[in-house]
């Protein structure tokens, strides 16, 4: 029982951050139809920026986001404006190929700057534990959970009750009609992409403490994010957060209850099954 609770907690904590990662991708897909296969490499970029800031200024990753978020958003805006926007109107597959190319550029750009050795970025709370009955939680995971949900709720409120949020949803639902409202669709797409990348910068800091980082780690995160987004039904806000929890929990249960390899396979197995039998995602036409 204790083991079960431990796995469940662990899965929930990590899953919330997976959900956050996927929200960024889902937003971007919703307004511009772009599936960004360099998503995970942007996370790696965010992590290595934190590492650089730690080495140069001994900043704690949680503090570094003050710098990494605006920088990453700027990079995101430029990438969308100059690389992805020219592809609008081309086939979806061209965008896949382009972002795969971008993934190579980012991954190996990082490799050239930082080298391939696994590195760590310490944080003040890195090794602190929080014990609740029989369940042991690492404080960075708890922080990740709280911040992820707070951000998700913040995003939700933003989408529902601000003009920018409504513009995003309008472009998602009908881009032509949105432009007839006087919404600059291209600008909304650039800003949404930048927002998505900014979210990744925060997620990167949340995932960083205690995680050895490598330039090649991006692809794993891309895959996890894709799993979650698809589970959540691509643009369904609640579904995506739920998808994140499902993937997080299945990963945690898999590694605790099954052998190593089966445990790692479990999320993919669940993904394939859901993809095949519930291609519209986990939720039933809820929010958004």
């Amino acid at each position: 029982m204790a083991e079960f609770l431990q796995a469940l907690t662990q899965g929930l904590l990590i899953g919330s951050t997976y959900g956050l990662l996927a929200l960024g991708m889902g937003l971007v897909y919703g307004v511009s139809g772009v599936v960004n296969f360099a998503h995970g490499d942007f996370i790696a970029l965010g992590m290595f920026m934190c590492l650089a800031l730690y080495s140069a200024l001994s900043l704690d990753p949680y503090v570094s986001i003050i710098i990494t978020v605006p920088v990453m958003m700027g990079i995101g805006a430029l990438v969308y404006r100059y690389l992805l926007r020219p592809m609008v109107g081309y086939k979806f597959l061209m965008i896949v190929q382009l972002t795969l190319g971008l993934s190579l550029v980012l991954q190996n750009g990082i490799l050239m700057v930082f080298g391939g050795q696994p590195a760590r970025t310490p944080s003040a709370v890195e090794s602190k534990l929080w014990i609740l009955g029989e369940v042991v939680m690492r404080v960075p995971h708890v922080i990740a959970f709280v911040v992820s949900f707070a951000l998700a709720i913040g995003l939700y409120v933003m989408l529902r009750s601000t003009d920018f949020g409504r513009s995003i949803r309008a472009v998602h639902q009908n881009a032509h009609a949105a432009s007839l409202m006087g919404i600059d669709v291209g600008r909304v797409q650039v800003l949404t992409f930048a927002l998505g990348i900014g979210i990744l910068a925060i997620a990167a800091a949340l995932l960083l403490p205690g995680t050895p980082i490598q330039p090649t780690m991006g692809l794993r995160y891309t895959v996890i994010t894709l799993l979650v987004v698809v589970l959540g039904g691509m643009t369904n806000f609640v579904g995506i957060m739920l998808g994140g929890l499902v993937i997080g929990i299945s990963e945690a249960f898999g590694t605790i209850y099954l052998s190593d390899i089966l445990g790692m396979l479990l999320p993919y197995g669940i993904f394939v099954l859901i993809m095949l039998f519930r291609p519209q995602g986990l939720t039933w036409g809820a929010a958004r």
């Binding site: 690389l83 020219p86 592809m87 081309y90 061209m94 190929q97 382009l98 795969l100 190319g101 971008l102 993934s103 190579l104 550029v105 980012l106 991954q107 190996n108 750009g109 490799l111 050239m112 080298g115 391939g116 330039p215």
Partner: peptide, 20 residues
């Protein structure tokens, strides 16, 4: 290390943008 992949990435992006 990784320079060649980096260049592959740049080339593919350039090709897609210039001659899809």
């Amino acid at each position: 290390p990784g320079l060649h992949y980096f260049i592959y990435g740049i080339v593919v992006i350039a090709v897609i943008l210039i001659t899809p």
